[in-house]
Amino acid sequence: MSKPGKLGEGAFIQCAKCKKIHFANEFEENLRVCSSCGWHHRISAQRRIEITCDANSFEELDQDLKSGNPLDFPDYDEKRVGAEDKTGLLDSIVTGIGRIDGNRVSLAVADFSFMGGSMGSVAGEKVTRTLERGLEKKCPAIVFCATGGARMQEGLLSLMQMAKTTSAAERCNRASIPYICVFTDPTMAGVLASYASVADVILAEPKSMVGFAGLRVSKQAGVSKVPDDFQSAEFAYNHGMIDKIVERKDLKSTLSQLVQLLGGHLLEQQEGDKLTTRGAKK
């Protein structure tokens, strides 16, 4: 839907929404946001990390985890291998430790281009570890969602990831580890109904799709007429489900503010952090 159309030799990119044609380099410089209509096109996990973390501060972790095919689900192996080839990733989420304006954060970034960002055992484990690293390293945890929901091909194992990740969020709650979630396009179903919705602070990119069930399922459930903004970030915001809708270019500074405001109490506890000024023990 929001995959930009390409014209010519990649020198031009057409906005998926308003169809305006942009120079590819300008489009990328503008963080893949249409300068004409403001539509936020999806970006890769790698690019998201580049524009969120301080230069060269991100250290990827758990990059060796990959899914098996525990249910022997038809066509799953082929789909996964295809996604690996396409994205260069082993699963739908990239995790690690980085810094935002000098402050350490535990980060997870979903990549929609890997099987629709779906959550199976690996994505569930990596999000859980991201929250646990926040606990362990005494730093805020930030998760960027971009997902259609649980990965059907891993059956009930995927449903259990909803519980596992929510449990990690609960442990962060009890330990006063700030947990911030950013809904990007799309944030749906099993992910929305688990760790994403229990974050301390929820931000969203404009016009991201946000909802419980795909529109087809909703229609089956008897939803015949829905408002134009149904299952959008704006709809969720207007119903009190999101703290703030933030444009992509402003996300880093908003996250930075929140990390400082909510995570200040952690700085004294962060051992071996050179940037800690107040808590330097030696």
Partner: peptide
């Protein structure tokens, strides 16, 4: 399954499910 209709979505069905799990873990 949980209700996936317009009303349920408007009142945060996803948040309600997630919050219930969170409560049970506590």
């Amino acid at each position: 399954g949980a209700d996936a209709g317009l009303e349920a979505e408007s009142r945060g069905i996803s948040e309600a499910i997630a919050a219930s799990m969170l409560k049970m873990f506590s």
